[in-house]
């Protein structure tokens, strides 16, 4: 799968935002370039969720907010057996949800 998760880089102040907005939250400029959201970072927080809204194969889902080294933060699936606050991870892309329209690809984090 060649799917990429993308955010926006403000063409005026250079702030990278994820997810995208119609207006730059930093300087209110309205023109952007698309940037790929990927790389290494650290786990800011995580949770194992047992109360799931849809059918997942697993009993629980391990979700995390990761702060990438460029400062951008993302929410995704943490694929690590022994999660810890601050642990180093890198992004990959995989199936994060099965919906009526098919498998949804999104960000996953693996230990580095």
């Amino acid at each position: 799968m060649s799917m990429k998760v993308t955010g926006m880089k403000c063409s005026s102040c250079g702030t990278v935002s994820y997810p995208t907005h119609a207006v730059c939250p930093s300087c209110r400029n309205e023109t952007f370039e698309t940037v790929v959201i990927e790389g290494e970072g650290k786990v800011l927080t995580y949770t194992d969720v047992y109360a799931l809204a849809v059918e997942y194969e697993t009993r629980y889902l391990r979700l995390a907010i990761v702060e990438l080294d460029d400062g951008v933060r993302v929410t995704g699936h943490l694929l690590a057996d022994k999660p810890k606050l601050g642990m180093r991870v890198k992004t990959t892309i995989g199936t994060v949800r099965e919906m009526a329209e098919g498998a949804i690809q999104g960000l996953q984090f693996v230990a580095v």
């Binding site: 109360a51 799931l52 809204a53 889902l61 993302v74 999104g106």
Partner: peptide
């Protein structure tokens, strides 16, 4: 950026709580 990952209100609360 959240919903497609299976994010629910309890999960946001879990992330926040930790």
């Amino acid at each position: 950026a959240e919903y497609i990952y299976g994010v629910t209100l309890p999960s946001l609360a879990g992330l926040f709580a930790r």
